[in-house]
Design a protein around this nucleic acid. Structure first.
Length: 114
DNA sequence: TCTAGAAGAGCTGTTACCTCA
DNA sequence: GTTGAGGTAACAGCTCTTCTA
């Protein structure tokens, strides 16, 4: 494929970011319904001057991004919980060692007396 | 009823492009 | 002007669900 052909594909494939207004409407709709029916997507596309496929893809990508963020959030919560438990475990371990030491001392004392 | 296959929609991973530091 | 990173629109390929003959 020559450079001209590649350039023409790129021109036809020209990717434009959606306007703030379009994003605002899409976000608003997403808040209400993350999986709108195709009729709704068609209506939204008409209102925003987009192709229905563009709206469908936007919702697809938005759901994927939301899911990633939710997983990130859950991961952070679990990590914090794990760190809390791990620190508590270390505390209990040290307490246990100290108690075992005390017990050993008592045994020694009692052993000497008998 | 049961079933195979077509159609439509969603999910996941990837690519290509744009923007910005 | 160049470059690398991050964000995102668009796509490909697969799965799942629903419908129907």
């Amino acid at each position: 494929m020559n450079m001209e052909a590649i350039a023409s594909i790129r021109m036809s494939n020209n990717k434009k970011r959606f306007s703030d207004e379009q994003i605002k409407s899409l976000e608003f709709m997403f808040e209400a319904e993350s999986r709108p029916e195709s009729r709704m997507k068609q209506r939204l596309a008409d209102e925003l001057g987009l192709q229905p496929r563009q709206v469908a893809i936007w919702f697809q990508n938005k759901r994927a991004r939301s899911k990633t963020k939710q997983i990130e959030h859950e991961y952070n919560n679990l990590k914090a919980e794990f760190e809390k438990l791990a620190s508590n475990y270390e505390l209990l371990k040290r307490e246990n060692q100290s108690l075992l030491l005390q017990l050993q001392k008592l045994k020694n004392i009692l052993g000497e007396k008998s």
